[in-house]
Amino acid sequence: MKPAAAASPAAYYAVMGATLGRYRSLGPVVAGGWDAYVELGDEPDSLERAVLGGARWLSWGQGPTVPGCLRVTAGTGADIATAATAALAIIEALEHAGILVVPAVENAVGLLLYLQPATPQWGSAAALAERAPEIATVDPAASDGRALLVELDPAAPIPLPYSLVDGPDGITAVMPVTVDEIAAMTAGMPVDPAPEVVLDRLTAEGDLASGLLADAPQEGTTA
């Protein structure tokens, strides 16, 4: 995969379509953008048509195998190191409760934590924030210098791994990362979820979010 493949949303999704097809099998997917919003069908070219129509991001709707998701974003006066520190504490708590956590970066200041199962007895974002109140909160008005936790649901929506997203620095992509990389972020390692970087990482390191696919249907996967 060459970096040039990410020059446009259409080119990016042309390369990433097969990988995204596996995640589309977890539940209904909506493709959206500033002037586009459409639920993808099972037709092989449904993603291509949606993107050509102006869609840029992909999100899950409701479904029994759609993962849960927490967004961990640096508040005012904070940075990715703060968000990463909070994310590590949350991951430890959730994994201790037997929850599969697949972390990803969505922009230079925020992470997504995908959860399987989606509706476990792990409590709420507020309960998780209380585990590290000095660095995490669910109250936007109290997020100065801290990480803001938001529990996503299909109304939020939940971006698919590898989806393009609109961020503060322009279009980025949801980039799965390892816990070791999050630990490095706490020490100030910068993150660059540019589409071309995500394409190159997928080639070099494989699909780091594939643990979410354990509950995917074995038949009828779209591509």
Rank of each mutant, 00 (worst) to 15 (best):
E39F: 05
V51W: 03
P64R: 06
L70N: 06
L58T: 04
V51Y: 01
A50R: 00
G75P: 07
G61K: 12
A50C: 13
L58F: 06
A55D: 03
P67D: 11
R71W: 14
G68L: 09
V72T: 05
G68Y: 05
G61D: 09
E43R: 15
P67S: 07
E43S: 07
E48N: 09
R71S: 15
E48S: 11
V51P: 00
R71L: 09
R49M: 14
D45P: 00
E39H: 10
E39T: 08
G53V: 04
V72G: 03
T65I: 06
V72S: 08
D45V: 00
S46G: 10
W60A: 07
D42I: 05
G41S: 05
W60S: 05
T73I: 15
P44A: 13
T73S: 12
G53D: 15
R49I: 13
R71K: 12
G68I: 10
T73P: 01
D42H: 10
C69Q: 04
E48I: 06
P44M: 04
A55W: 02
L40V: 00
P67I: 11
L70R: 13
L47F: 09
L70Q: 09
R49C: 03
V72L: 12
S59L: 10
W60E: 09
C69K: 05
G53L: 04
A50N: 00
L70I: 06
P67R: 02
T76Y: 09
E48A: 11
L52W: 09
A74M: 12
R56Q: 13
W57H: 15
C69W: 09
D45R: 00
L70A: 11
L40R: 02
A74K: 00
E48P: 02
L40A: 03
P64M: 08
A74H: 03
R71Q: 14
V66A: 14
R56M: 12
R49P: 08
E43Q: 10
P44W: 05
G63A: 08
R49E: 14
V66Y: 12
P64G: 06
A74T: 10
G53E: 14
L70H: 12
T73D: 02
E48G: 14
G61N: 06
T73F: 03
G53F: 08
R71N: 03
G41N: 05
G53R: 01
L40C: 05
S46V: 03
G61H: 13
G68A: 06
G68E: 02
C69E: 06
